[in-house]
């Protein structure tokens, strides 16, 4: 489904993008994600397709605002039955109950929204939004009101929902983790689409430094191309010459290199490095270590400051401690090159 919308109020916004299966509309807050969803739902004046000119009640969509908007004076069952008004009362109730049961909420049919957890409320709202078999489901920041555990599951849940229901889901989010579970990612920046594609592409080859930051390249540093050898680009940096898997570029070109914290590798003295990894070894010390869920977040300080994310089992083996001297290596294929923008735009 191709979306083309032009909005002037409350903000000026012009967006063209594709929706395919579970599509993540990724962007920081205030970049127009909610506005785009509301325009598609017909809730703000906008021109475009699909559904341009139709009243919200006539659009084949389901809409879930950030806090789900369950009707607080109705039970979960009555909420789900609300959109089924055209059915006879008995069928209506049975269908609403079936929907609730599908989402594992049959036992809570009689509960009011205030008696449900964040995740349960979200599922009731999803059941309600799906009741009219919408062609497109719009979800605004579905991770915002969930606890950590539920947050981790929601991406996979929505992806399989899109597949099972054969429905399109557009989810506005600032959460790269959720976007990774999507079939298609659309990045919104400064009220326009700056990149779209499958997550494997957007997450590994972000189109700009801002997109790079948004999708998790938190280590970014400047360099200058010095040559091309054996299929690798040679880039001079404060940490010496780094080998980067890339097309050739003219020597002297200023570039920015980016690497994800989970893709910075710690060199193990007891294991020989493969050839490709031998070039990009940097020596330094571990400055800080912090536990973050199942990961250990480390700060590496050497010629470069790098953030490192290690699975806990790796730390259990390496037993890193603050102040310890280590060597890290940056795999040439994991180093992302940003040639179009200068380093000064980073600050």
């Amino acid at each position: 489904m191709e979306v083309r919308y032009r909005i002037t109020k409350p903000i000026r916004l012009e967006v063209n993008f594709r929706i395919s299966g579970l599509t993540a509309l990724l962007g920081r807050s205030g970049e127009g994600k909610t506005t785009t969803l509301k325009a598609l739902a017909g809730l703000i004046p906008a021109r475009g397709s699909p559904y341009g000119g139709l009243r919200p009640e006539a659009r084949p969509i389901g809409y879930l605002p950030q806090h789900h908007a369950l009707f607080p004076h109705m039970t979960a069952l009555a909420n789900v039955a609300f959109p089924l008004q055209n059915l006879p009362p008995k069928t209506r109730k049975a269908r609403a109950l079936a929907l609730l049961e599908r989402f594992g909420l049959g036992a809570l049919a009689g509960a009011r929204p205030s008696e449900l957890s964040g995740g349960q409320r979200q599922r009731v709202a999803l059941a309600r939004a799906l009741a009219r078999n919408p062609e497109l489901l719009l979800l605004d920041e579905p991770t915002a009101s969930l606890d950590r555990e539920a947050r981790e599951d929601i991406g996979d849940f929505l992806a399989s929902l899109a597949e099972e229901e054969k429905t399109r889901i557009l989810v506005a989010t600032h959460d790269p983790e959720l976007a990774q579970s999507a079939h298609w990612v659309v990045v919104l920046e400064k009220n326009r689409v700056v990149q779209e594609g499958p997550p494997s592409e957007v997450f590994t080859r972000p189109a700009s430094l801002n997109v790079a930051r948004l999708v998790g390249f938190s280590n970014l540093f400047p360099g200058q191309v010095s040559g091309f050898q054996d299929g690798y680009l040679l880039v001079e940096t404060v940490a010496g010459t780094l080998w980067v898997k890339s097309e050739p570029l003219a020597p002297g070109t200023p570039v920015t290199l980016g690497v994800r914290p989970e893709e910075v590798l710690i060199v193990r003295k007891d294991r020989p490095l493969r050839v490709a990894l031998r070039h990009n070894v940097i020596a330094g010390t571990i400055r800080r270590l912090r536990l973050q869920g199942p990961y250990v977040k480390a700060e590496f300080s050497g010629p470069l400051e790098l953030k490192i994310l290690l699975p806990r089992h790796v730390q259990d083996r390496l037993k890193l401690s603050p102040g310890q001297a280590v060597e890290v290596t940056l795999k040439p294929a994991y180093l992302q090159l940003f040639s179009s923008e200068s380093f000064s735009s980073l600050s």
């Binding site: 809730l43 919200p56 009640e57 389901g62 605002p65 959109p83 009219r132």
Partner: peptide, 8 residues
């Protein structure tokens, strides 16, 4: 707004 998108 949500009520409208639910056809009301």
């Amino acid at each position: 707004e949500t009520a409208r998108t639910l056809g009301a």
